Simulated assay, not measured.
Amino acid sequence: MGQEKSTLHAGGEACEQYRIGRTTHTLAVEPSSGFFHGPFANCSALFESLVLLGNQLLAACAKDLSLGGALTGSCQASPMHRLGLNFYRPGHGADIANNVDYAMSPHIDHAYFTVVLQDEPGLQVQDEDGTWISVPPVPDAVFVFLGDYLERATNGIYRAATHRVGAVTTDRISIQYKHRPAHSTVVAPLEQCTSADAPPRYAPFDTGAQYTALLQSLLDR
């Protein structure tokens, strides 16, 4: 808890985090079906199901903009998809001496999009006017929001969602899945999304070296 540093205040993120997925182009040990212990064993099966969902969602985005494989091809070999389990408890912020009234700092995900399931309220997204809108838990439903990579690749046609976790008043668990390209993919505005009237609005982002540097800065390693 609190290992991930906030980019907006001096403290850390007030939640316990468990992560499954790639952060580099290779793994020292390839996880087998029996790699994860106890109740986390089911996470590998959940991960596989969400990857399939993610592929379908990304294919729908590509079809919508007539991008073909220019978008989906980046996820074909060793993608850096990630499954995260987050636990929030009232008082976690005080435990790590935070002085803010929210549990997770406002941010945009470094992913094409994120799929979230939550058992209690807490997730909030920001509208164009800066107002925070609470996302209620809906039984048997997932919430999907777009990330930086999709906004960058489509040159802003799709917009990433700024989101946070507000103050929690009861124990809360969320499951988040982030759909990402392969390591060292350079995400930049696609040619099909630019023109003389719509020049590239975003600098290229290297999901290898640049993302690794960002992760190290957040984890202070």
Rank of each mutant, 00 (worst) to 15 (best):
N55A: 10
R22K: 11
I173N: 08
T185E: 10
S49K: 13
M1C: 09
Y149C: 02
H179L: 01
L53C: 11
I96E: 15
T212N: 13
G93V: 03
A77G: 07
P136A: 02
V51M: 03
I108D: 07
I108Q: 13
A213P: 01
Q3W: 10
V165A: 02
A10S: 13
T24L: 11
V144G: 00
V144D: 00
V144I: 15
H25I: 04
T7K: 13
V125Q: 00
T7H: 09
P199T: 07
A77T: 13
L53N: 06
C193N: 05
L123V: 07
L50K: 09
Y177H: 15
H81A: 01
N155F: 01
S44N: 09
S134K: 11
S105Q: 12
D119K: 08
D206V: 07
G130N: 05
V144Y: 00
M80I: 05
V29D: 09
L219Q: 11
A14D: 05
P79Q: 05
N42D: 10
I133C: 11
R19S: 14
E16A: 05
Y158D: 00
H25T: 06
H110S: 08
G12L: 08
P121S: 11
R19Q: 13
L53F: 06
L71H: 07
F145Q: 04
Q210R: 04
H107T: 04
H107Q: 10
G38F: 12
H163Y: 00
C61I: 06
Q210V: 02
L123N: 11
Y112K: 02
I20E: 07
R22T: 06
G12H: 03
G38P: 04
A198F: 07
R201C: 06
